[in-house]
């Protein structure tokens, strides 16, 4: 009975606000591999999709940034668990997109490990980067990192899953919400990853994924006043220059990770979390505690 069965092909859509809508533009493009196989029809996202995603991300930010840090860690770990359970699917998807079997297996494993790594950092980076500052007055003065807000991410073309995870995880670990433009040439894993996110207690809108052309979509992220930071993960000096110019209007935090090899140790660090944080300093009035000669 199963021999003549028609294949059931997945419709890859966008991921916005915890939903999987098609692009409002109605456009699509063919994802193919080097053998010329037609892998899927992908949504060719538009600027309007990006704006919708920014609205969702902004709405989700208040709740997500206010979550207990430990709870954010639990949720990141949950994503890792769900990815682990689906690792075979991701391996075969990567293989269909020209990654060798061995590399695909490693990429999925590294992605899972990376999520666990940042899950652990969720309630620890504040202690590492927070400071108690010596001041000359009767104040207890301390600085803590806080999320910057809505972060736009342009992911890398190569290592489509690992680079995606490596860019998203530190951003959301730090309480930000993100709008991500994944790999254009190898886009399947990004939308399958959205399904994993959707099953992992991540509130809708915290992670939004728009497939499409970075050259078209990144400028929309860069010039939008409601995006607080932009992470450029792909190698394109032209795109960088444009983003930096457009980002000046609201003094966006713009970080470019071109030289990073996500497959190595270099690809994970709490400093990636710190890159998307603002520092809040509090002057707390106290009695003079200088009795023992201390200055804070």
């Amino acid at each position: 009975m199963s021999t003549n069965r028609l294949s059931i092909l997945k419709t890859y859509k966008l991921y916005i606000g915890g939903q999987f809508p098609r692009t409002e533009s109605g456009r699509s493009y063919k994802a193919t591999n080097s053998k010329g196989d037609h892998l899927a029809n992908m949504c060719w996202g538009s600027k309007k999709d990006v704006r919708d995603a920014i609205v969702s991300a902004r709405a989700a930010w208040k709740g997500w940034s206010a979550r207990a840090a430990f709870n954010r860690g639990q949720i990141l770990y949950r994503i890792a668990e769900m990815l682990e359970g689906r690792s075979e699917q991701f391996v075969s998807e990567l293989v269909s997109m020209d990654v060798t079997a061995q590399d695909a297996k490693e990429e999925v494993q590294d992605s899972i490990d990376r999520l666990v790594y940042y899950a652990g950092w969720c309630d620890k980076y504040q202690q590492v980067f927070g400071t108690v500052n010596p001041v000359a007055s009767s104040h207890f003065n301390f600085s803590v990192p806080e999320s910057t807000g809505v972060v736009g991410i342009v992911s890398k073309e190569a290592s489509p899953l690992l680079s995606l995870v490596s860019l998203i995880a530190p951003a959301i670990a730090g309480g930000n919400t993100v709008v991500v433009i994944p790999s254009y040439s190898k886009p399947l894993a990004a939308i399958s990853f959205a399904e994993v996110i959707n099953d992992s207690d991540v509130p809708g809108g915290v992670i939004n994924i728009i497939t499409g052309k970075a050259t078209e979509l990144a400028p929309a992220l860069a010039e939008h006043m409601d995006v607080n930071a932009l992470v450029l993960g792909n190698e394109s000096d032209e795109l960088d220059k444009d983003a930096i110019l457009k980002g000046t209007h609201n003094l966006k935090r713009i970080v470019a990770y071109h030289e990073i090899n996500w497959k190595t140790e270099q690809g994970q660090s709490p400093y990636f979390i710190l890159d998307l944080q603002e520092t809040k300093t509090t002057w707390h009035p106290i009695e003079n505690i200088g009795g023992a000669g201390a200055k804070y």
């Binding site: 704006r51 920014i54 902004r58 010039e223 939008h224 006043m225 409601d226 209007h249």
Partner: peptide
């Protein structure tokens, strides 16, 4: 007026 989508922050 500016061509840029705005944020409630401003």
């Amino acid at each position: 007026a500016t061509g840029r989508y705005q944020s409630a922050d401003y």
